[in-house]
Design a protein around this nucleic acid. Structure first.
Lengths: 154, 154
DNA sequence: TATTGTTATACTCTATAACTATA
DNA sequence: TATAGTTATAGAGTATAACAATA
């Protein structure tokens, strides 16, 4: 039972994956190709709202991005000035603000995600269909288990 | 043939994985647990050297980290002062420097990697063995294919 | 003249502290 | 008194520009 062996091989792959994602110009190039007129953290806000598929409070955005409140506030200013998001007072709580994508914001986020998705699709285009499905299933489980594990460290 | 569907589901998982890796305190906690007395970029240099398994030139380290030369130089100072790396002139080229881990540096990098590996092992401890093997195989292929794809964008 | 690396400087991203307003 | 958000400031990480030494 070489239980640890495959994992020891996976770790470097994950690190390479992280490098490809963060340090290669993958993100910048997709932003350019999709003509998304914001900086990187601004893009992350847009994507967060797009994946939530409903208006979010500032605090909710910060929690999902795993950053601190003021960081979100700061970039909401730029996004609002660019006409990509709208801030409205939460009718249930006058202290809170609900942030929602404008049509332009939803369009930009959609174009970006489609571009990335297109590259990924191209990368696995010649995979057998069941390998793709299996990979999706195992990756989802891995991320969920890892997240739980990290949460357990508290 | 729902070719795109599984991938559309994978993309958010990859983003969550990126968040867990970069924005959760996973790295910081592992550094603490392994008692690695450096900052984050310093750690990346140590890991890069450890995974190379031979002395590297400054430029090689920068290329593998996907950062620019001066950034590496800067952190090599701290690492050298802390006794974790050694810089020696490359005998083949007097302009270049070969950077190698000291015993202390190799120990620190090893402890860190073992800590992370332990967490990952724990996260998939109750997976069927063949799922683990399959995941490792598909992840390696995915990273390689994606890297190639990104390189093709040039 | 091109390449390797260093020094000095500036920019981007994110955090902490202090504050305002509602609850 | 506690919570949601903002403003102002500080810090970590990385890039660009100018330079020195060797090829």
């Amino acid at each position: 039972m070489s239980e640890g062996l495959d994992l020891a091989a996976v770790l470097p792959q994950l690190m390479r994956l992280g490098t490809v994602f963060n340090r290669s110009q993958l993100v910048e190039r997709a932003m350019e190709e999709a003509a998304v007129p914001v900086d990187r953290p601004g893009l992350t806000v847009l994507i967060t709202l797009r994946m939530a598929d409903r208006p979010l409070r500032v605090g909710e955005i910060a929690a999902r991005m795993q950053v601190v409140g003021p960081h979100v506030t700061r970039h909401l200013h730029d996004l609002e000035r660019a006409g990509l998001v709208r801030r409205v007072v939460d009718p249930d709580d006058q202290r809170a603000r609900l942030v929602e994508l404008t049509d332009a914001g939803a369009g930009a986020a959609g174009r970006y995600l489609d571009t990335i998705l297109g590259w990924f699709t191209g990368a696995v285009a010649d995979w057998p269909a069941d390998d793709r499905a299996t990979f999706g299933r195992l990756l989802s489980r891995f991320v969920a288990d890892l997240q739980e594990r990290v949460a357990d460290l508290d």
